[in-house]
Amino acid sequence: MSSLRNHDLVLPPRFPADAVLAFYARRAIPGVEHVRGTSYRRSFAFDGEAGWFEADLTTGRVAIRHARPAADALVLERLRSLFDLDAPQAKIRRCFARDARLGPLIREHRDIRVPGCWDGFELGVRAVLGQQITVAAARTIASRIVARHAQRIEGAADDEPCHSLFPDARVFVGADFDGLGLTGARIATLRALAQAVVAGEVDFDPAQGTARFVARCTAVRGIGDWTAHYMAMRALRDPDAFPAGDIVLRKVLQPGTTLSAKELERASQPWRPFRAYAVLLLWRAA
């Protein structure tokens, strides 16, 4: 593998590194991602070759190891989306400031970010795995999938924490998921999503708009509005995507009451066009 190259990423003032790192740490898939101290590290592929990067979210220092220096531009661009570095925080604060529920939260946290993803299909798999189970349980199953089906990076050292590439959609189409803790229905959904991505029926291009994306995703058996809007939040980077069916949101907005998805949708209208940020605030308050 090539030599290590270092870059500096400009981080916004008051960037909530601890919160962003905690989000990724809870979801990090062993072999693909690793959170240590103030840094996030992951494997990636560029131009048919594998490598890894590590970003320190307090100093902005980025280390990239890849055979092709051209990969660096891709990584640095993706990092802005991955960590939501360009979020319009002043506008978000103004939007939420007078809200009875969100106002105190935004004053407490000041800076809120919606973590992105490296790859849309990978995020789709994670979203499907997360249906109706805990984050920890979904991470465990994802780690089993990687252990069985991921491509090991050639030359990766035994102690390299990011030694494999997350399997792509073509692998998922014919993969054996038996014995990994998945139900038959969930396996069918993973395969259906993979087939739709391979066929071009589902893609993660933000230019299509969330309404079209949700319609295409929910045409896949086993994917509902919650999953599609969660993907739109993190993969399409739609600041107004809103998974109204989320049980945590429905409980935390009015403590002691569980709102219906329609009630939550109505309650969320004043938060537009930044409802995805409201989701992160309310999750943090849960």
Rank of each mutant, 00 (worst) to 15 (best):
R110V: 07
V32P: 04
A194K: 05
F83M: 14
S3A: 15
R65H: 12
F121Y: 06
D238S: 15
L193M: 09
S260N: 04
F53Q: 01
R113T: 00
L11K: 11
A73P: 06
V128R: 04
A199Q: 13
E54W: 00
A286L: 10
I112M: 01
L253C: 11
R94Q: 13
R107I: 00
R126Y: 09
R27T: 02
L165A: 01
F177D: 04
G256D: 12
E77Y: 11
R275N: 04
A228S: 14
R36W: 07
A285D: 15
Y40T: 04
P239I: 10
N6M: 08
L123H: 14
W271E: 04
T58Q: 10
L4V: 14
C217G: 01
S260Y: 05
R42N: 11
R216E: 12
D158N: 06
G245D: 08
E49P: 06
T257N: 10
P115K: 01
G120A: 03
A73S: 13
F204C: 07
A63N: 01
G48T: 12
P16T: 01
V248Q: 12
V198L: 08
I64T: 01
N6T: 15
V198R: 09
D168C: 10
V62N: 00
A285Y: 12
E160Y: 02
F15S: 03
T59P: 00
G51D: 03
A45M: 10
F204E: 08
N6K: 14
A156C: 11
A241T: 11
W52F: 14
E33Y: 03
